[in-house]
């Protein structure tokens, strides 16, 4: 292919991305690095403000716990799916369906379950396990549940893709050498799916620190995360600089996570 044709084919994408993504980002974020001249003062201020710090750490904490839970539940489930034959595509469809369902709908589902008059409280009350309804909604707990619910299917689908590349004969070989199912899982399947687990975890973690609708609907005004905070600063308070600072912090968190995990993943993948 001639270089001119090549350039012609990629030019529209390059131009659109430059004009409508990178230029706006630079224009929006540049002011956060100046305070009568180049300065990191706004970032220092952000990280010394106890409210911002609390939001930052709540975001990270929820993302970490959600990632771990998705990992712990996702790995065995994905292994279960990848070793089915007839029911496999049905189970995959069942995992993909929530993924394609609107996040607002998915958060709404948990409002119905966790609310004061929600399904869970009514069940517990009718069984007599509690006497007054529990406050489950608009807490860190409800954000966490919603986040896990949002990203567990993503973890499962990613892991099934990774586990499908493990030949069945390899696990059979392990069994024939005397490894029980459980030992085969821990000694063969788990090490071989580590790269997939890393990829899935990155997707869940970066997704969790940037998700908007779930913390907005399940967290309420008191339990802000970075994504809801940025919207509130910008739209309700017209505090453009804080919004820009938060935006840049989120970009850095995403990029750093992806880069670190790429390094880790390359080291883990010994195949």
């Amino acid at each position: 292919m001639k270089r001119s044709v090549f350039l012609l084919l990629i030019a529209p994408g390059i131009l659109l991305l430059t004009i409508f993504l990178f230029y706006p980002l630079v224009v929006t974020l540049a002011p956060t690095f100046s305070n009568n001249g180049p300065s990191l003062a706004r970032y220092l201020a952000f990280f010394s403000d106890s409210y911002y710090l609390a939001v930052f750490f709540r975001t990270v904490w929820i993302a970490v716990v959600a990632t771990l839970v998705c990992m712990i539940l996702g790995v065995p489930t994905a292994y279960f799916i990848s070793r089915r034959r007839r029911s496999k595509s049905f189970l995959m469809a069942l995992s993909i369906f929530p993924l394609l369902t609107n996040p607002v709908v998915r958060a709404f589902a948990w409002i119905n379950i966790l609310g004061r008059n929600g399904v869970l409280n009514s069940l517990l009350l009718s069984w007599g396990w509690i006497t007054t309804p529990l406050t489950l909604l608009y807490t860190d707990f409800s954000i966490l549940i919603g986040t896990i619910y949002l990203f567990l299917p993503l973890m499962i689908v990613t892991l099934v893709g990774s586990m499908d590349t493990i030949e069945e004969e390899v696990t059979e070989a392990a069994e024939s050498l005397g490894a029980s199912r459980l030992v085969t899982f821990f000694k063969v399947v788990l090490p071989l799916s580590l790269p997939g687990i890393v990829v899935g975890s990155v997707l869940v973690f970066t997704g969790a620190i940037t998700a908007y609708s779930t913390p907005n609907l399940l967290g309420g005004n008191k339990n802000m995360l970075l994504a809801t905070l940025i919207y509130q600063r910008a739209m309700s308070l017209a505090d453009w600089t804080s919004a820009g600072v938060i935006a840049f912090v989120m970009i850095v968190m995403t990029v750093v996570t992806v880069m670190v995990m790429q390094k880790v993943s390359r080291r883990l993948d010994r195949r």
């Binding site: 059979e172 070989a173 069994e175 024939s176 005397g178 029980s180 063969v188 090490p191 010994r270």
Partner: peptide, 20 residues
């Protein structure tokens, strides 16, 4: 008898070595 309790040696066409 479960596979892992049979003590049979098995060699596959694809070799099925543990890649890790």
């Amino acid at each position: 008898t479960a596979v892992h309790k049979r003590n049979f040696g098995l060699v596959f066409q694809s070799y099925a070595l543990f890649p890790h």
